[in-house]
Structure formats: C-alpha cells, structure tokens
Design a protein around this nucleic acid. Sequence first.
DNA 1: CGACCGATCGTCT
DNA 2: GACGATCGGTCGA
Length: 217
Amino acid sequence: MKGKSLLQEADILPVEFYQRSNVLQIAQQLIGKILCTRIDGIVTAGRIVETEAYAGIHDRASHAFGGRQTARVAPMYAHGGISYVYLCYGIHHLFNVVTNKADIPHAILIRALEPVWGIEAMRERLTVSNPGRSIAANDMTIARGPGKLSRALGIETRHTAMSLMGPEIQIMDDGFRQPARSVMRGPRIGVDYAGDDAALPYRFFVKDHPAVSGRSR
DNA sequence: CGACCGATCGTCT
DNA sequence: GACGATCGGTCGA
C-alpha cells in the first residue's frame, strides 16, 4: 500500500493556488503535481507532465475569446479552483483547471499524466473503450494526451464545474519538485485556427518524458 | 517516421 | 449545417 499512503500524505492544493492572476505561472507550477479522481468508487491518479494555458478573452485559442458566454463555457467565468470539462470531436472529454477570480475566464488544459495509482483501473477503462487492444502493465502512454487522460481517470462532462478540492477530483502536492531546467515551453497543440495566438508559448511539458504527448523536446 | 483520414456528437451560428 | 484544445489506424517513403 505504498502508493496509497503516498496519496494520503499528499496535500490538496488550496483554492488560493488557483485564484492567482498569472495563468502561465500556474500552468508551469502544475507540472509535477498529482491529479487524482475517485469516480464510481475507483481511485486513479497520475503526475501532471504536460499543461496548456488559455488566457481569457483576448486569447483566440480560448473558448472564452471575445468574452463569449455560453452554457458550456460558464465554468470558466467562475472563481478559480474548479474544473471545466467539455466534449471534443464528439468523442473525447477534455479536462481543464479554472484559475483566477470570478469573471476572468482563465483555464489550463491538463494534457498528459504519468500513471501513479490505480493503473489497473486505467487500463481497464481504456480496454473497454478500445476493445481488442492489449495494454502492457507498465505502459506509460495510458494517460498521454488530454482525451486519453480523461478516459483513464473516468472524467466526463458531468464532472465540469466541480471543485478541485472535492471528494471526486483533487490535485495534490506530494512534495515532488520537477527540476526547472527539465520543464520545457512551446506552442500549444491543435490550435491552428487561433491565428497569431497559435504561436504563443503557452504549453509546458517535462523534457523527454515518455508520457508527454506530441513533441517532448 | 510523417501525412492523412474516419469516428462521432454537443455546441454554436 | 459546420465544426472541433483528439485518437488510432493505415499508407507510403
């Protein structure tokens, strides 16, 4: 029960962590933290190795660009410290962390995790969604990519606008510190539609990590 | 390896 | 009626 005790001893990030104004700083600081879910009674967790910041109403890549207010994006306008989950391509659920104060719609997409706890359950969920495909017990790619991450942790759209300190979703600090020189920065993935903002270096990732999606250098 | 393609559906125009 | 903050498969070099 080594892993479990590690999770129990980790500290849940306080709401103040999320309510700060610098979304890029928070995206960088989320690298190395642990995202944990307890969904359908199953505990799964992974260390965050890749994030992307979405910087509010002036960011063309953000769902809140131009101050857009719809039912789907409403959680982005709430106070920091909750989730924003939406369905992408009709297939994938993408999990975001909402930051800043109310009415400032900053968010951070969690793009990849290194599996830490509940790996059997993650493998089972991926197998159910992708029958006939075998997954090795030590596969480091079961939460590589924002769609796979949500699948592995059981996150769906019903988990949008949910507290990140709550019983079902938590982000924790277990004391691990990712060395600063191993945290890389570059343009976000899949936002070509965003014009000039597509080139902004708002993506953070652990250099050469096998659980990082896309380019890892 | 890289390029391309189909799946699949809620959301917004 | 069009379009994705994706993924896994295929095809060709």
